[in-house]
């Protein structure tokens, strides 16, 4: 189990995350939802060790992540960013192979190459393997990033809005791949999600963040209530079961109570460890 224990993160003097607690179980999908600027990405980055939390710990299968060397951490946690800046592009094969970095000393072994090839095939990327990554569509690029994280052979996967660049079909395809993997390889998945319907449908648990704090967490049907959505998003919504799935239909902007305020989310820049 991946445990996030009482995590705090400050950017300059602004509190971005406050007392976050989360458990990611193997074979399960946990989605973080919440409005823009509420700290979803920051939380993922803190867990991945890209940002350093002000307080709190991340425990991976009983080991404190803080005490792990970077390379060791990369064998436990795969991180899939929303997108990736491209300078001096590599091929798809090379990019996925980069996921083997935690296992590579000086040059990739035969095993590393085979593992990379297997994953590329699994993800249906074989036709693109020798293409440069800057020549891919947004959807293909996101698939490649997922493939790279899979090449890390980790037990846990962190995904930052894995469907943000995708059209309807690719969206479903991507999420289906993710939950199938979670089940088959018994991986624990933690993803930040924008789309409430998709996260309700594909997650075992929902963690709803609001202004850097956990607003509620629980099964999708428990977390995605009209009351919660009004409070967190400021939107009146209708929630119902349809075709076996939870349907969240936003209706209109709710009148915001004056006490709610309009927090301007701080822009969190990357920092090196």
């Amino acid at each position: 189990m991946l445990k996030v224990m009482n995590l705090y993160f400050n950017y300059n003097d602004t509190r971005v995350l406050e007392g976050i607690v989360a458990n990611v179980e193997k074979g399960r999908v946990l989605s973080i939802v919440g409005p823009n600027g509420t700290g979803k990405t920051t939380l993922l980055k803190c867990i991945a060790g890209i940002l350093k939390p002000a307080a709190g710990t991340v425990v991976i299968d009983g080991h404190d992540a803080d005490g792990m060397a970077r390379r060791e951490l990369a064998k436990h946690l795969g991180y899939v960013p929303q997108s990736m800046p491209v300078r001096f592009p590599a091929t798809v094969f090379e990019t996925v192979l980069a996921g083997r970095r935690p296992y590579i000393a000086w040059r990739p072994s035969r095993d590393d190459l085979e593992r990379t090839a297997e994953i590329i095939e699994e993800m249906n990327l074989a036709d693109l393997a020798m293409r440069d990554i800057d020549q891919l569509s947004g959807g293909q690029a996101q698939k490649v990033l997922l493939a790279r994280a899979l090449a890390q052979d980790t037990l846990y996967l962190l995904l930052d809005e894995p469907t943000s660049n995708l059209d309807l079909r690719h969206e479903l395809e991507m999420l289906e791949v993710i939950i199938t993997l979670a089940k088959r390889k018994d991986m624990g998945v933690l993803m930040a999600m924008h789309d409430l319907n998709l996260s309700a449908r594909f997650s075992d648990t929902i963690l709803m963040l609001y202004q850097g704090k956990i607003f509620c967490s629980g099964k999708p049907s428990e977390a995605m209530t009209p009351e919660n959505i009004r409070e967190v998003y400021g939107v009146e919504a209708a929630v119902r079961q349809e075709n076996g799935y939870l349907q969240i239909q936003p209706l209109r902007c709710a009148d915001l109570s004056p006490s709610r305020g309009n927090r301007i989310p701080p822009y969190v820049k990357d920092q090196e460890d």
């Binding site: 890209i50 060397a69 946690l77 990736m84 090196e272």
Partner: peptide, 10 residues
């Protein structure tokens, strides 16, 4: 592929 990716890959 960026500092973030590099960090996440160890």
């Amino acid at each position: 592929s960026g500092d973030e990716s590099a960090l996440a890959l160890g």
